[in-house]
Design a protein around this nucleic acid. Sequence first.
DNA 1: ACCTGAACACCGTTCAAGT
DNA 2: ACCTGAACACCGTTCAAGT
Lengths: 213, 213
Amino acid sequence: MPTRPALSPERVVDAAVRVADRGGLALVSMRNVGRELGVEAMSLYHHVAGKDALLDALADRVFGEIGLPAPDRPWRPAMADRAASARVVLSAHPWALGLVESRRNPGPALLRHHDAVLGCLRRNGFTVAMAAHAYSVLDAYVYGFVLTEVNLPFEPGEGPDEFVEALNLPVDAYPHLAEMVAEHVRGRDYAYAHEFEYGLELILDGLAARAGT
Amino acid sequence: MPTRPALSPERVVDAAVRVADRGGLALVSMRNVGRELGVEAMSLYHHVAGKDALLDALADRVFGEIGLPAPDRPWRPAMADRAASARVVLSAHPWALGLVESRRNPGPALLRHHDAVLGCLRRNGFTVAMAAHAYSVLDAYVYGFVLTEVNLPFEPGEGPDEFVEALNLPVDAYPHLAEMVAEHVRGRDYAYAHEFEYGLELILDGLAARAGT
DNA sequence: ACCTGAACACCGTTCAAGT
DNA sequence: ACCTGAACACCGTTCAAGT
């Protein structure tokens, strides 16, 4: 019979990612992750210090998936690609943002990522202060966009129309919201995704003007 | 003896806010909220449908604290004030962002807020499409900034220096991160808070240019 | 109408015991 | 060295019972 491969911190984190992708952060319990590995919950404690350490590792695993900027590219396409990659990865694991909010210990993948982004900006003539500005505004935008995108009240598949019906917005109470829905969303195959590029370009334009590059 | 005031949905949500402010979202359990009110957990079910409904109400309560734009102000200061107010409120209740990520049912306070912001933009000459762009980029920025701010690895009081010591960043592995810390953070009474205004002004400039107002 | 106690199926973690 | 069973103090929720 196929003897079960030995447990390891990596295999435990892998299993936790699978559980989270399947049912969200709430289902990531020591018991569920153990079951995913065909093992009792208590066995996991030989490989991770506890649930908190497992969640730290989970967060760092996701950041490791985000593409690093190539060291020799101009900053603007490099930052645009990084933002797009971060959005794809964080949207694919919607539970990851919930982790960002509560994890205080930056892991090696996150530190590596920060270093690569700063390096790209510095090599392209950004001062240290300007690189700090750029990183702050870009990161905030990407995180925040994914946060609202993940939280959209309608599923990506169904489109907003069904949702609008269900919400049954009282027009007199929320006239401007109703206008927005009627003119900009309903029946227009409104893709919230397009907003991402608009805001990103706006920010990159602003950074280019201020950095003088 | 002072007879206990009758329970009500409002009092239950109030108690949940107190529990969350004290110990974070993880401590908001039906049992803990009940204890806060001097009542058994099961009593709460007569006033809220369940824990999920309680969390929805908790999220909407926080949004209700964010200041609405005055109806007759120019859009730019109104948006700047709204962003600042949202940042203050969300930072004061750091657990609220964790709720945004998981709540799909917009409550009345959130709808009212959205409507007021859109109204301000429309009255100031923004087209419907441009108002959608503006709302998207501003909201993403504010949410994302608070998310990273709340998650800063050092406490607001202690400043970053102690943290930098504790992290003991390996300079050879993360040269650019080390440079940023050495030149821009350490001993310079670096206030991450200042980054908020920088990014916000950058975005408002971009919107003004694009909206032509 | 409102509150409760017991119960059920969960949770993280400790610890002594097994192999 | 690695895995486990029982135990402890929790969790959301149901339900029959009390007032």
